[in-house]
């Protein structure tokens, strides 16, 4: 298979790229559906989030993960809110991972950088989603000078999504590391 992968054309529209992106997106969604103790909302644990590390190997995975999150969120009770924020959030954080790790060679370093990016920027966006959707403008809440109420709420969400995400990132990191030894993910 390594030989086949090496042939992959890198333009976005090439057939292999299309099918690879689609199938990785499907892997993300399938993992979310099969292993789902708590896949939505704060205190979430999505095993599939561990796949975020893939973006450190190839920009193709940025789109794959965005689509995967979108499909997984098709069953989210929050509908549109999760579709937009979830997908955009994933695309933003994985793009950053890709850009930051472009020159990094070692798999472990890639995974560590990716974990930091996802845990800080990615989860900050997710926490912002909850803050924005449920709190801003609620009955004209948070009048000016509300003791940093918005920030406090954002922080509360942020801290609550963190443990599950870190667990997924560590488990995902081990899987992706093992995988990177078996196939060349950057091709």
């Amino acid at each position: 298979m390594q030989k086949n992968l090496a042939k992959t054309n890198t333009s976005i529209g090439s057939v292999q790229n299309i099918t690879l992106i689609a199938v990785i997106a499907a892997v993300y969604a399938a993992i979310t559906f099969v292993i789902q103790p708590l896949a939505f909302g704060p205190v979430q644990l999505r095993a599939s989030e561990g796949l975020n590390h893939l973006a450190a190997w190839h920009k193709r995975y940025i789109i794959a993960l965005g689509l995967g999150v979108f499909i997984a969120n098709l069953v989210s009770p929050l509908g549109w809110i999760d579709w937009i924020f979830g997908t955009m959030g994933t695309v933003i954080m994985t793009s950053i991972t890709y850009l930051v790790t472009r020159r990094v060679k070692r798999a472990v370093t890639k995974i560590v950088i990716s974990s930091v990016v996802v845990a800080t920027i990615g989860m900050a966006i997710l926490a912002a989603e909850f803050t924005l959707a449920f709190n801003i403008g609620a009955s004209g809440a948070f009048p000016s000078g509300s003791n940093g109420g918005i920030f406090a709420q954002w922080l509360a969400y942020y801290l609550s999504v963190m443990p599950g995400e870190v667990a997924s990132l560590i488990a995902g990191g081990i899987v992706i590391y093992a995988l990177s030894k078996m196939i060349d993910l950057s091709k």
Partner: peptide
């Protein structure tokens, strides 16, 4: 197209 293929593969 990717979305359609992905939905089929899930």
């Amino acid at each position: 197209l990717m979305l359609a293929i992905a939905l089929r593969f899930v």
